[in-house]
């Protein structure tokens, strides 16, 4: 099987990685780069736990080949905070009690960040729609939805 040398920017830093053809972006992040904040919940594009930003768009990293990330800009949950200043979404997930077991949270935060980036003032149904691909079994989503709403309200204060 062929290997490919790819150059990719992850959380602002550029990496050169050798990846086999059949490696997914999720496997590369977790197994090659030890960026284990991104979670593997189904490996089938259904649960959203592995969501990352790929050139600014939320994708399931289990449904992207690592080789496709050549030249791409990737942001994982580890890249949401800047200089230990948390993303407002992270702050609000904590303060609103949106976190329980926490396994879905990295993907949930990335989907929410992608939403606020493309739609800074989302309506309730926009939030539900944007997060419907992120399964959570603990929270019933109630506080997650609320945290995203609050973060949108504070949107102006957020770092670019």
């Amino acid at each position: 099987m062929a290997y490919h040398r790819i150059t990719t920017t992850i959380n602002g830093a550029t990496d050169v990685v050798d990846v086999p053809s059949n490696m997914t972006l999720l496997q590369m992040l977790r197994d090659k780069l030890a960026l284990t904040g991104t979670k593997n919940g189904c490996a089938a594009g259904e649960c959203g736990a592995c969501t990352v930003l790929f050139n600014g768009e939320a994708v399931n990293s289990c449904m992207v080949l690592a080789v496709e990330a050549d030249g791409a800009d990737i942001v994982t949950v580890e890249g949401l905070a800047h200089d230990s200043q948390l993303d407002p979404l992270q702050e609000l997930f904590v303060s609103e009690g949106a976190v329980q077991c926490g396994f879905c949270i990295p993907g949930m935060l990335i989907s929410a960040r992608a939403l606020l980036d493309r739609r800074p003032n989302p309506a309730d149904h926009d939030i539900r729609d944007a997060l419907s691909g992120n399964l959570c079994r603990c929270t019933g989503y109630v506080r997650i939805i609320k945290a995203v709403k609050e973060a949108a309200k504070r949107g102006h204060a957020e770092p670019a």
Partner: peptide, 9 residues
Amino acid sequence: VASFQLRSR
């Protein structure tokens, strides 16, 4: 179709 993440692809 499916979810936002899948629609990105």
